[in-house]
Design a protein around this nucleic acid. Structure first.
Lengths: 247, 247
DNA sequence: CGCTTCTTTGACGAGCCTCAAACTGAGTGG
DNA sequence: CCACTCAGTTTGAGGCTCGTCAAAGAAGCG
């Protein structure tokens, strides 16, 4: 169960990583080769596995190829705050801090690719395009953190849930998972509660309300936004400035 | 009123900046000289002045010498979320993003020093100690952001206020403002409310309660923590890992 | 002294939490 | 194939926290 490194046959295609990088900036043929090579060195993780432990040094940096994880902090009394969901195409451990500022925990079965070789290439200036994409990725991650902070500080339960669903839809669409309305959502209501700063019961009731008002459907790990525009209005959600906003 | 550059006689000493850098890592004589030289190029800002506008490019990066500011985002309906308070010794505009992720607004009269010369020196590898201190500062700022997120997501009004007061006390003590119990707090209750995700009324009632329980005193811009240990227990506050935790 | 801004207080209601229990569905083992 | 278990979801009841509205004090400032 502990995060031992076991290179394995690649089960899932590396495409989500490429799609996210391409969404951030255009990358070259040689950049793509680098990523695909990194994609050969896979690692599998079970749900609940702690890939990064808060306060510990960051061992190996990775791309997420498939599955979901969460950046979180546990409080001594058992409460936890989830800062960010980590989706396919996202990175793990790319912050510059020598010690992790948060834990990263697998929420589902997770498949990652070792990114150290890619990062070495960018550090040695052998892949300027990739370096730019990764830098932009960091900024985008920071944006997501701030968006989440606004949710927690200013929005009602109803708005928070709607806002988060829109964010997840948009992020997943970029990496080719789901379309404009439908996307995988392999989260328990407890996990949603810990992300949104709500109780499980309140998350449940809010989801009921969203269903009752025919704004979403949600069953067996798949979410459908029936009226994305209405949701955007409710949550005051504006799609992210992935390409714009960043040099 | 707009942020025009007017070099002026330095009114406040540059010490807070030096103190914060020294708290982050030991800096050399020549580093100190660089900072003191930057400290000659002062700028004054009135309360309400927007030093950085969200989405705009970052013009001039600065050290805060005296006064308070806030990193914030405004919502279209007039709500705002304050992400972080900017105190003397802190930096403004040091994020790597080409466009600001948040606005920075002066909450009081503010005095800053131009840090571009210092940053040029670190970029050209002429001040490795300073570079390390500044990198650590960024990580520390990120920590503060995460702490604030935990406040917003997991804590009650009472805990949030206590936690924030402890954080401010600790940060101000590092830069030589206030002692272990007493520190300046030039914030209106409205500003506190926008930071803590509470209504003004609730902030007021919470402060009353803290006073009633003889945990704090608060008048004319000065806060006194009467029982810091009790507050730490209430808020589950652990003093920051400024020096530890970071390489 | 009169203005504005900020703080304080009361009354009321809505939102959200807690506790508790029933229900569902997916294994798991007899 | 059928209990049985266990994790997750759903529902109800009740109460506390916190927000809103409103208005009265207090404090700074020209």
């Amino acid at each position: 169960m502990a995060g031992r490194f076991k290179p394995r046959l690649a089960v899932w295609p590396i495409e989500p990583v490429l799609k996210r990088l391409r969404a951030l900036t255009s990358i070259s043929e040689s950049d793509e080769v680098l990523i695909r090579e990194a994609g050969e060195r896979r690692e599998q993780h079970g749900p609940g596995e702690e890939l990064i432990v808060e306060g510990q040094p960051i061992r190996r940096r990775r791309f997420v190829v498939a599955g979901w994880a969460a950046c979180q902090r546990m409080l001594p009394d058992g409460r936890r705050q989830i800062f960010r969901f980590v989706l396919p195409g996202d990175t793990i451990g790319f912050q510059d801090a020598p010690h992790a500022l948060w834990s990263v925990v697998a929420l589902t079965a997770l498949e990652t690719a070792d990114s150290e070789s890619v990062l070495a290439a960018t550090a040695e200036d052998r892949a300027p395009g990739l370096a730019r994409a990764i830098a932009k990725g960091k900024i985008h991650d920071q944006q997501l953190l701030l968006d989440h902070m606004v949710r927690l500080g200013q929005q009602t339960a109803f708005e928070r849930v709607a806002h988060l669903l829109l964010e997840l839809q948009s992020r997943l669409e970029v990496v080719g998972l789901g379309d404009g309305r439908r996307f995988p959502l392999p989260l328990t209501q407890e996990v949603l509660a810990d992300a949104l700063g709500l109780s499980i019961v309140q998350v449940n009731r809010t989801l009921q309300q969203l269903r009752r008002e025919r704004l979403i459907e949600l069953r067996s790990g798949v979410a459908i936004l029936l009226q994305p525009e209405a949701l955007s209005g409710i949550a005051d959600y504006e799609p992210p400035r992935l390409v714009s906003g960043v040099r």
